[in-house]
Amino acid sequence: MGFTLDVEKFRDAVVELIRRTSTNLPEDVLAAMETAREGEKDGSPAKSVLGFMLKNAYTARENSTPICQDTGTNIYLITIPEGVSLRKVESAIVDATREATKKTYLRPNAVDPVTGKNTGDNTGTMAPFLHFDEWDEPAIRVQLALKGGGCENVSDQYKLPDSRLKAGRNLDGVYRCIIDAINTAQGLGCAPGVAGIGIGGDRASGMIIAKKQLFRKLTDTNPDPELATLEKHLFHDLNKLGIGPMGFGGNTTVLGVKIGTAHRLPASFFVSIAYMCWADRRRSMVFKENEVSYD
């Protein structure tokens, strides 16, 4: 069960993965939006806005153009077999990113925070963002999410206890933080969004857990029954807020709530919320020596 990396083939496969992610919204997201549209009143702005979003998604798919011009932070979760060079994988992904930018699947989005200069090709320090794991399969799995700046700006992190929200260090406290975060976000993160939640960890790992939740399908069920219940409860209550698509009012404020956890320090209890816009662009591929499959 050996695996030898053909760097060039891998790079080309990643370019195709970027194209698919940027231009083709996942089926479960489209289905959730179609259901949401059904649930809005006839003649309401909510219904027409959801219709416009769906039409946009189908147009982007048909024309192979980006769904949204903000192709955002490129977040990669990469799972490799033992012995594959991380540096080679990283450099192939960086090359693929440059190529995908040239092909206008991605907007030049990497800006030096000191000089203000845009590198023009989406590469730079921590850009794209890569996270590596290892598995036993003779293949590389690459999961990619494109997360725009509007929804990143409304993502948030709470520290429990929080006296304003009367939130203690328990799941009720977590519930309070998330209600507050989504209400604070209003339509600014391009509602209806998906709330990826990380409970625990430190400030960095908690947010990574939150972002990892965004790779889950909207239709899945949390394996932890207590968290599964909280996800359902939050989904129901958040959609009572009335914020609606783009914040114009309506019954659809979120398309999903996904919760993960990480062990925390005795002194810290963070609740991290990674808000993902309705243009919930995530795709994956499994790259084998003689075959590439995309999902």
């Binding site: 979003m53 039409k55 946009n56 024309n63 783009m246 114009f248 816009c277």
Partner: peptide, 11 residues
């Protein structure tokens, strides 16, 4: 207000 994320149609 334009529809956020609807970049393909708006273009």
């Amino acid at each position: 207000h334009a529809v956020g994320g609807a970049a393909a149609l708006l273009a």
